[in-house]
């Protein structure tokens, strides 16, 4: 995320805000459910918690149509190349949320089978703690990511 060397003018600042606002209000997620966290991710998207309030109830099956990848669950050594491929297929701008302890650090499974932290495979913008994080935690993570986008530049 390279910052600008000179402070932008009034017009560009307003444009930045507008673009960022547009990005945060309809941030479509890629379907990337892996383990327990995927169940909580689905619960977040379902009726009781209703992720549609933040304009992201649509989880896209095609990575081409997705802006946000929520890595929900433990990433095995066998899955890591697949994950990277899905990430590479997503079009810019794209963000990654690492949901739960396993995706963030390997969690309690410090063994031969798991990638110890998905940040070894893809760049992560937001870590959501919990095992699994409840819907409220995930929504907090998403909203914090929105804040981050709003505060950032558009040419990320």
């Amino acid at each position: 995320m390279a910052g600008r060397s000179e402070p932008p003018g009034f017009l560009l600042t307003t444009l930045d805000k507008g673009v960022n606002w547009a990005r945060t209000r309809s941030m479509w997620g890629a379907v990337f459910g892996l383990a327990c966290c995927a169940i909580e991710m689905m619960a977040t998207g379902a009726s009781h918690n209703d992720l549609g309030r933040f304009g992201m109830e649509v989880f896209r099956a095609s990575p081409r149509q997705a802006d946000l990848m929520i890595v929900a669950g433990r990433v095995s050594q066998k899955m890591a190349p697949v994950l990277r491929q899905v990430y590479d297929q997503m079009s810019e701008p794209k963000w990654v949320i690492s949901m739960g302890a396993c995706a963030s650090t390997g969690g309690m499974f410090n063994n031969y089978a798991l990638v110890q932290g998905v940040d070894q495979v893809v760049p992560v913008d937001m870590y959501v703690p919990g095992c699994p994080p409840g819907p409220q935690s995930l929504m907090h993570g998403i909203l914090t990511l929105h804040d981050k986008i709003m505060a950032g530049d558009i040419d990320r």
Binding site: L34, A35, C36, G73, R74, S76, K78, M79, V82, M108, F109, N110, N111, Y112, A113, L114
Partner: peptide, 25 residues
């Protein structure tokens, strides 16, 4: 095998009381 977590190996490193945290997942 895309979600192979090695839980049976991890179980051998946990005490019987800790084992519940492993199998529940």
């Amino acid at each position: 095998g895309y979600l192979h977590t090695g839980m049976e190996k991890t179980a051998e490193t946990l005490t019987y009381l800790q084992g519940g945290t492993n199998v529940t997942r």
